[in-house]
Design a protein around this nucleic acid. Structure first.
Lengths: 343, 343
DNA sequence: TTGTAGGCGTTATCAT
DNA sequence: ATGATAACGCCTACAA
């Protein structure tokens, strides 16, 4: 049986032996350090090449302790919402010299636990969209700094207060107000909001919306759609539901941009003109909103600012030392109404 | 001046001291290992909690040597093409227990060198879309296993043969043949291909296309478009160019899906019906091709297979030991014609 | 159940 | 210019 050592990668000692020098000289050659003759350096690099030597990142990182690493957890990178966010997080992380480790965690409390634990052992802080119970979060991430994105107040309140946790939440209220006022200014009489029924309770946005509309003397319409695999279907289904009602809406605020694309599509299939017959407003401000026709009016989230806030919070948490108290801050981001063609 | 040690994170020894045990007992408590009394464990965990202790990933990884880490380099995560690819790479990596480190490298030979070097020091292999000269690639990545995605033959040939390098290329020829034959079967007489002028030379796909069309007794039309910030503009510009010619095309094969969306949009703006007046075929098979109207007919790339091939190659390269020869394989992926509404 | 000794692979420091 | 020695923080193996 072959010695395990033989099949593994060459280490610094093997290179040193082959080149007939000490390991320190190998280090000098590999890292372009001064204090080594060109001839020796050449011999060492030759030996390294021959053995396909590559310094172990473990050994190096242990002694240098410099590299900082950030974890990002999202449910689906192929979803433009998450990929635009990930792109901004990547930029912020790179700009500050942090590496970015990305993990996809599919929805469902049981899925991907092992990956999350593994991630927790490899990074210095985590930014995450997470659908885990507070107890599980504490169990999996322990004392690792964790910044939760757009999570509920209940979840935040239930987290262990002794753990380094932060949050950046999305406050839809101001943007939703702008959208509603914009539609009213356009003379719309029956404004509808699409809501996905994740549970039996209405989502927070419904409450805000109802109050907004009532304050302005109209009757709110909420289009409730079952959870679907695809937001496109959510949007199409929303139109089916809304236009089978006796009095269909003349404006639809979709659940997000992706579902708004579905709304646009189903409206076109039905021969209903946008925005003449029905305005459509999305939420998120994805770049591909410019790719559809008509171009999507939307409540744009500033992903760069969102990422920056989350990153700052993560750094803050990870540099807090033992003696200082935990910050426990909860930041917020808002939307900006971007009026394009659909509403 | 405060001792640097004081402001840093607590180590295993401090926890051990506070709990009044040896560091080994701390390890047992932290890692849920047997051979420790509940009472001692409680005391240790309490001490760890108080000091906000978290085992150093450096020390752990060094001794365990288990965690494998894959780097992925793309130009823009917010571009759906790259995010769909990244999503598949993430799945493959996770399924095999590898962590995934993502880096964005904007186009341009000078940008992001430092980030790439940093990445090279933190991972065990890299999969990359890269626009670097072969010499720079060898300089930056050294003996680190590197799998290049969709790169030119010239680049591959110029790489140092002693380095662990692999490649997965996209062979457009079979798919393009299918697309052309499909359009001919539809009775199209003037099929045009959109090409971006990255350099003064025509791209490879143009040559393939011209030959294909001529073999079938038609005259090829290539729509040349300048490089643009956004593929949407590429598509719109292509239509402007094509329909300002004396004999406009009755079918357009776009540069990719993103530019195809631009083509669709500009055609609609001009009141030209799709597919009646002009068929449109994209390349890539992005998920959002289903979001536009009409749904985009496209040459779909199997991103999952693409990612799997690249990952396998990366693993292959990184497990090759010193004695065995370098594989140097060049794999290929192809497209599948997916007929939807636009052509 | 608990503690001690050793080593993982590298870089930094100091001596030669 | 080069080499010897000592960390880095943790885990595994073995001894008590």
């Amino acid at each position: 049986m072959a010695n395990r050592k033989e099949v593994q990668r060459a280490g610094i000692l093997e290179v040193a032996r082959l080149a007939g020098v000490s390991r320190q000289t190998v280090t000098r050659a590999m890292n372009d350090m001064p204090g080594i003759s060109v001839e020796t350096k050449r011999r060492v690099l030759e030996a390294a090449e021959e053995l396909r030597y590559r310094p172990s990142r473990f050994g190096r990182e242990l002694v240098q302790q410099s590299t900082q690493s950030l974890g990002l957890i999202v449910s689906d990178l192929a979803n433009p919402y998450f990929s635009e966010l990930a792109s901004e997080v990547a930029k912020v992380a790179a700009a500050n010299g942090w590496a970015l480790v990305v993990v996809e965690k599919r929805p469902g409390p049981e899925s991907g636990r092992a990956e999350l634990r593994s991630l927790a052992g490899q990074v210095d802080a985590i930014i995450a969209y997470l659908d885990l119970a507070p107890h599980d979060i504490d169990g999996i991430f322990g004392n690792l700094p964790l910044v939760l994105l757009d999570t509920s107040e209940q979840t935040l309140d239930a987290l262990s207060p002794s753990r380094p946790r932060g949050a950046v939440s999305i406050d839809l209220a101001p943007g939703l107000t702008d959208a509603v006022d914009h539609l009213l200014a356009l003379g719309r009489k029956r404004i509808a909001l699409v809501d996905i029924m994740y549970s039996t309770d209405e989502s927070v946005r419904c409450g805000i919306f109802r109050e907004l509309i009532r304050e302005r003397g109209q009757e709110p319409t909420v289009i409730k759609v079952e959870v679907a695999e695809d937001d496109l279907h959510v949007g199409r289904r929303a139109v089916e539901v809304a236009f089978s009602a006796p009095e269909p809406p003349d404006a639809i605020i979709a659940f997000n941009d992706m579902s708004a694309f579905g709304v646009l599509k189903e409206l076109r299939v039905r021969g209903l003109s946008v925005p003449e017959t029905c305005c459509v407003i999305g939420i998120d401000g994805l770049k591909i909103g410019l790719f559809v026709d008509p171009e999507l009016t939307t409540l744009r989230l500033d992903f760069a600012a969102f990422a920056q806030l989350a990153f700052d919070e993560a750094v803050q948490l990870s540099t807090t030392n033992v003696s200082s108290p935990l910050p426990q801050s909860r930041k917020r981001v808002f939307h900006e109404l971007v009026v394009r063609q659909s509403g």
